[in-house]
Amino acid sequence: MMNKFVRSIALSALMGAFLFSGIAGAKEYEIATVVKITGIPWFNRLEDGVKKAAKDLNVKAYQVGPSDADPAQQIRIVEDLIAKGVDAICVVPNDANAMGPVLQKARDKGIVVITHESPNQPGADYDVEAIDNVEFGEMNFACLADAMGEKGDFAIFVGSLTVPLHNLWADIGLEYVKKNYPDMKLVTDRIPCGESAEESYKKTMELLKTYPNLKGIVGFGSLGPIGGARAMEKQKAKPGDMAIVGTVMPEHASRYLSRGLITKGFLWDPADPGYAMVAVAKEILEGREIKDGMELPMMTGPKAITLDGNIIKLNAILEITAENARELGF
C-alpha cells in the first residue's frame, strides 16, 4: 500500500510539474501597433482598443508611433520592431508605397503584418477596415452638398498626399460630386494638413483670402475640420456661413458642432480597429484561418466581418452631430 501511495504522490508531482512547465513556457505573443502620429485624440483612442485587446486576449500588445506624421520616422520604427523580433506588427501607414518594402521584410522574417486604413497595402497579410470606404466617401460629400445648397466653391483637406484612405475618400467624393452636383466647384487641389489643427487653421485662413466665395470644406484627418472651425470662429462666422464636414473625434468637435461651426462629422470608433488588428494578429499567430462571416472579439462584443480578398471589413460608420457628440464618450 505504501509503495502505491508513494508512486501516486510521485506521479501527481510529475504531472503537476509538467503542467506548470507548459503554462510557464506558453507563448505570450508580442504585437506592436505603429500609428501615423502619437499624441493626438484619434490615436489616443485607438490605443485604448490596443490596451483592452492586450488585457482581454492575454498578449503583450502596445502602441508606438512618430512624433510627426513622417513616413520616414514611421519606417524606422518598423525596422526597429523587426530587429527586436516581435511576433506581429500592426500599422496605420503614412505612406503605403514607402511602407511596402519594410512590411515585406517583416513578413519574410515570419512576422505577421496587419494594416488599417490602407486597403491593398503591399506587404500586408491583412488590412482591417472599419467601414465601407465608398459609402463613407459619398456620405461626406453628400452632407457637404446638402449644407451648401448643392452649389458653390469648396476645398478638401487630407492628412497628407500619401495617406491611402484620405485620398481614396477624396477620389470617391469628387467622382460623386461630378455625377450629382454640377454646380459645385473644387477651387484647388486637395490640401495636406488634416493631421494638424494649427496647419488646417492656417490653410483655411489662406483659402478665405484667396477664394472669398468659398462655401465648404471636407476635412479628412481628424484635426482638419477642427482647424477649419477655429478659423471660422476667428472670423466671427455664423452657423451656415461655411459648411465643414469630415472626420472628427466627438468630444473634440462637440463645441464646434454645438455652435454650427462644424456641420457634421463622420467616423468610426478608433478603438475598434485598434482592438481588431490585435485580435486578427493573434488569430493568425495561433494558426487559425480568417474567414468571411467569422466573429472577432471587439470593444463592445463580437462583430462579424466581411472578407474581401485580404481586406477585413467591419460596418461601423458613425454620424457625429451636435446632439450625440458628447454621448458617444470619446
Rank of each mutant, 00 (worst) to 15 (best):
G173S: 14
N324Q: 02
M99D: 05
G287W: 11
A142L: 15
Y176G: 09
A170R: 07
E135F: 15
G329P: 13
M205Q: 13
G216D: 00
K202F: 05
L186P: 00
A17C: 13
T188A: 07
D146A: 14
D95M: 07
L144E: 01
F220N: 04
E206R: 05
L208S: 03
I311C: 10
A69F: 11
K52M: 12
P122F: 10
N94F: 07
D95H: 07
E199Q: 11
V86R: 12
D80L: 02
G110K: 12
M242L: 15
K151V: 02
L261C: 05
G110H: 13
K4D: 14
A106P: 00
G246P: 11
E47G: 05
G240S: 06
A53L: 09
H166W: 04
M15R: 06
S8Q: 05
I156Q: 10
K178I: 10
L81M: 08
K105Q: 15
W169N: 03
Y29V: 13
A155C: 13
A325K: 00
I111C: 14
K282Y: 13
V218Y: 00
A237V: 07
A142E: 15
M15W: 14
S196C: 05
E30S: 12
F330M: 14
P273I: 04
T162P: 04
G216H: 02
G293W: 03
L261A: 03
L174N: 08
T263H: 11
K105D: 14
D56K: 05
R45G: 08
D95Y: 06
G152K: 01
Q235N: 15
G123M: 12
L307N: 02
D125S: 10
P93T: 11
A106F: 01
E295W: 04
P302G: 07
M205G: 08
A237K: 02
E195P: 03
T162Q: 02
N324E: 05
N213P: 01
P273W: 04
A72Y: 13
Y181L: 02
V248T: 11
K209D: 14
T38H: 01
G293C: 07
D292Y: 08
P273N: 07
L214Q: 00
A243H: 01
A83W: 02
F266W: 00
L186C: 00
G287H: 12
K234R: 12
K203P: 03
G219S: 08
L208N: 03
Y256F: 15
G173I: 05
V112M: 06
D132Q: 15
L57I: 11
K282C: 12
I305W: 07
L174S: 05
S254K: 07
A130Q: 01
L144F: 06
K179Q: 14
A316F: 08
Y181W: 10
M99W: 03
N140K: 03
F5G: 06
K27M: 08
I156N: 13
M277W: 01
A304D: 07
E233F: 00
L46H: 10
V35E: 04
L307E: 03
G301E: 10
A53M: 09
V134K: 14
L207P: 04
K4S: 13
D127N: 15
G39V: 09
A170E: 11
Y256T: 01
E138N: 12
P182N: 06
M294P: 05
